[in-house]
Computed example of a mutant assay.
Amino acid sequence: MASLPHILVLNGPNLNLLGTREPDVYGKMTLSELESFCRTAGEKLGLEVSCNQSNHEGELVGWIQQARDSAQGLVLNPAGYSHTSVALRDAIAAVGLPLIEVHLSNIHKRESFRHHSYVSAVAEGVICGLGVEGYRLALQALAQKLKG
C-alpha cells in the first residue's frame, strides 16, 4: 500500500501562545487544537500531516531542510519571521518543495512593517486573514498540486 503524501506544518514564534495571546487578533484556538485541526483536515484530503512550532529561527530552518527528504510539501506560518528572515526564505528556496504561507490575521490590515514578507517571494501561495481556515485551504491547495 502506498503511503500518503506527507505535509509538514510549521508555526513560528509566539504561536505557542495561541488561545491566550491577543485572541481578538489570533483567535481562541490553542496551538494543540490547531495542530489537531490540521491533521484532521489532512486526513480528509488524503494527506499525512505533521506539525512543529518553534520560537527559534534556526530550528525552523533545520526542519525546512530536513523536509526535503521526508515531505512533499510545507505549510508555514512564519509569524514575526515573515518580515525579517532571509534565512527562512533561502531555506525554502533551497529545498524546492511547494510551500503555502499562512497568517491567521490579515497582515495587510495591520502595522506597515507587517506588509512585507520575505517568505512570500518563494511561496506557491499566501493565505492571510482567514484564521485557522487558512491552514485547511493551504492543505487543500497542496493536495491538489500533488495530484497534478
Score class of each variant (00 low, 15 high):
V122Y: 03
G42L: 08
A93W: 10
A91R: 02
L76R: 05
P13Y: 06
R68E: 15
G131P: 01
T84K: 06
F113C: 05
G96F: 01
A67V: 11
A123M: 10
V126A: 12
E101P: 05
K28D: 13
P13Q: 12
T20Y: 08
L130P: 06
A87V: 09
E111R: 14
S54H: 00
W63I: 09
C128N: 02
L99C: 10
Y81M: 15
Q144I: 09
L139V: 01
G134P: 05
E57Q: 04
I64S: 05
V95F: 05
V102M: 02
T20V: 15
S117C: 00
Y135W: 07
Y26D: 03
H108W: 08
G27S: 13
L139K: 01
E48Y: 08
V122C: 11
E133V: 02
M29P: 09
S112F: 14
S105Q: 12
P5A: 13
S85L: 05
Y135N: 06
R89H: 02
V9H: 01
L31E: 08
G12Y: 01
E35M: 02
L47N: 00
N55L: 09
G134W: 04
M1V: 13
G12P: 01
L146H: 13
A143R: 07
L18M: 15
L31S: 13
A121N: 10
A41S: 12
K145D: 08
A79I: 01
F37L: 01
L76A: 05
K145W: 06
N77L: 05
V49G: 03
N16M: 15
N52C: 14
W63S: 06
K28Y: 14
E48G: 08
A87D: 07
H83F: 10
K28A: 14
Q65G: 07
E133K: 05
R89E: 11
V95S: 04
L74T: 02
R110S: 10
G19P: 01
A41K: 02
Y81R: 04
G96W: 01
L10G: 07
V126W: 10
N106R: 03
K145E: 15
C51F: 11
G131K: 02
G73K: 04
L137W: 03
W63F: 00
K44T: 12
L76T: 01
I92Y: 02
W63P: 09
S117H: 10
G125E: 12
R21S: 15
S82G: 14
L130C: 10
G42A: 08
C128R: 07
A93C: 09
L97Y: 04
A94C: 13
A41C: 14
M29W: 08
W63K: 01
G12Q: 03
G58A: 13
C51Y: 06
L60A: 03
L60T: 00
K109W: 00
G42S: 12
